[in-house]
């Protein structure tokens, strides 16, 4: 009884602010002017330009997730390998993207990757082709911005797993003469796989859902991401029904992609363990 009274205000407020809008989105997605059940919009969302947008959304999010897992695992191991004071510096560095709001992160990446901009100039100064960094507005800049902003999520997820690692196995392996690489590949890496998957999955979901970052850093019209398509349909053209159908399609596709990724990756992780 007391528990229900304590949770009721939070549940009611959350239901009002999340479930009511979502119900409205669902009704708009399948309803129409003639108030009949209408699934044609979902067919439209899964064909032609919108299908290309959906692929673009999922592929850029996946690319960002892979970068975050690879770099994030390195960062997590770095946090453990460094002595106290250097570890503090590394922690502060990891915090930077976490503290920077999405649009600011996107803007910082946009400025950094401007054609003829700072990074381009820096690359040219050390003898590399500066054009490598002239990617502002394109898909590479989108992936870079997503990866930069979400790196801490992957890094800290793996770091938490690394902290909870069973050390006795490592010591046992060392006792029987296993070298550092052998110990890493046979013991540490398999134990980190679940954290790498969940860190990557979080980045993937957040990346595929991103609106603010894409709005600032990516200028392409076709393909673009589904969140941008939703924004354009609803607020640019007043097509709220289509926007809602796209929204539900994206939500389902993201969750589906996630489930598939976990299914594909889990068995190999289990095998390695």
């Amino acid at each position: 009884m007391a528990a229900a009274a304590m949770t009721a205000p939070a549940i009611l407020l959350f239901a009002l602010l999340f479930l009511v809008p979502m119900a409205s989105t669902m009704r708009l997605a399948v309803g129409g002017d003639d108030a009949e059940f209408n699934v044609a919009r979902f067919a439209q969302a899964l064909s032609g330009p919108y299908l290309a947008d959906l692929w673009f959304t999922l592929v850029t999010a996946l690319a960002a997730a892979l970068v975050c897992v690879a770099v994030g695992t390195g960062v997590a191991m770095l946090l453990q390998a460094l002595p106290g004071w250097a570890r503090r510096i590394a922690e502060v560095l990891v915090l930077i993207p976490l503290v920077v709001p999405h649009i600011v992160a996107a803007y910082a990446i946009w400025l950094t990757l401007l054609p003829g901009g700072p990074l381009s100039a820096l690359l040219a100064a050390i003898g590399l082709p500066g054009a490598l960094a002239d990617v502002s507005g394109g898909p590479a800049a989108l992936v870079a911005a997503l990866a930069w902003k979400f790196l801490p999520v992957a890094a800290l997820t793996v770091a938490a797993a690394l902290e909870g690692l069973d050390r006795s196995q490592l010591e046992a392996a060392q006792d029987i003469g296993a070298g550092p690489w052998q110990r890493f590949l046979a013991i540490t890496a398999p134990q980190l796989v679940p954290a790498m998957i969940s860190g990557g999955a979080l980045v993937f979901i957040m990346g595929a859902a991103q609106f603010s970052i894409t709005l600032v850093v990516y200028v392409g019209k076709s393909p673009t991401t589904i969140p941008m398509g939703i924004y354009h349909e609803a607020f640019g053209m007043g097509q709220w029904n289509m926007a809602s159908a796209l929204g539900l399609t994206l939500t389902i596709a993201t969750l589906g992609g996630l489930a598939l990724t976990i299914r594909l990756v889990r068995p190999s992780g289990a095998h390695a363990a």
Partner: peptide
């Protein structure tokens, strides 16, 4: 807490739903 799973599921659904999707519904409401 009665209905604990429902509460957890609701928060999970929020995490999994893109902000623009919630935003479109919110704008209409």
């Amino acid at each position: 807490v009665p209905g604990r799973q429902v509460i957890e599921l609701m928060f999970l659904a929020k995490t999994a739903t893109p902000v623009i999707v919630v935003g479109v519904g919110t704008a209409v409401v």
